[in-house]
């Protein structure tokens, strides 16, 4: 019997009485309210904890070539991302990558089977991110308080990845237009996960949004 893991955020969502579920062996908040209410929150400003998604990190001078041998499509330029077959690949630098399985699939699970020093010049990076998906009409208002950079669609290049400070801690940001709506994905060190959740959730509530469970993300 495998043991249930927990996201860095789950404990701090308890006061919202979510419906819990298990995804990738991890306890996660599936919903906080009815689908209608969560959809309304999403329209204004919804925040979802997606830390439970499977991830794989790798760095090293040969990391890019090695990923190619694993049939992982990587972005051509640094600080950019590519989504291929439900696998999101973030190029964090010339020789560092974060790969995230979006909904289903076992690409990351397989990649994680490799040893820490998978090959010459390839180093596996154990990831323990807190990850969030934020969407809604008020998203830029929220991030104008949290981040000094301009995250509007006009200011960013296509598939641009940003590593910056959000609420005074280091974070990685990807913004994309989904169904005509700006969506921001955010990753930060898992040990800051609870703090980041508190900040995002508080601002979202102030701006007419709130917590959205993984089911309605």
């Amino acid at each position: 019997m495998s043991m249930m893991k927990s996201t860095p955020v789950a404990y701090f969502q308890k006061n919202l009485n979510p419906k819990w579920g298990e995804v990738n062996g991890t306890q996660v908040a599936m919903s906080f309210d009815t689908p209608e209410i969560e959809q309304q929150r999403k329209k204004n400003l919804g925040v979802t904890d997606v830390s439970c998604r499977q991830r794989f990190g790798v760095k090293g001078p040969k990391a890019n070539q090695w990923l190619a041998t694993q049939n992982i499509k990587t972005p051509d330029s640094i600080n950019s991302w590519v989504l291929d077959n439900d696998v999101l690949v973030l190029r964090l630098g010339s020789s560092e990558f974060l790969i995230e399985q979006q909904v289903s699939g076992d690409v990351c699970k397989q990649l994680n089977q490799v040893s820490q020093t998978a090959a010459v010049g390839v180093y596996k990076v154990l990831r323990a991110d807190a990850a969030f998906v934020i969407s809604g009409d008020q998203i830029l208002t929220m991030f104008s308080e949290l981040c000094k950079l301009d995250l509007s669609a006009e200011a960013l290049k296509p598939n641009q990845l940003i590593m910056t400070q959000v609420a005074d801690i280091s974070a990685t940001i990807v913004s994309e237009i989904t169904n005509g709506q700006l969506v921001i994905r955010l990753w930060c060190d898992g040990t800051y996960g609870a703090y980041m959740w508190r900040v995002l959730h508080q601002l979202a509530e102030e701006l007419g949004g709130g917590a959205v469970g993984l089911t309605n993300c």
């Binding site: 927990s6 860095p8 005074d168 060190d189 040990t191 800051y192 609870a194 703090y195």
Partner: peptide, 29 residues
């Protein structure tokens, strides 16, 4: 401003809290 105060927490912070821990800031933690 809003006075963000980033704090790092161990992944078992919940257990500590339930066990009656009194927390102290150690660096960012």
């Amino acid at each position: 401003g809003r006075n963000f105060h980033p704090v790092r927490q161990s992944s078992i912070q919940s257990w500590h809290a339930d066990a009656g821990a009194v927390f102290v800031d150690v660096g960012a933690w």
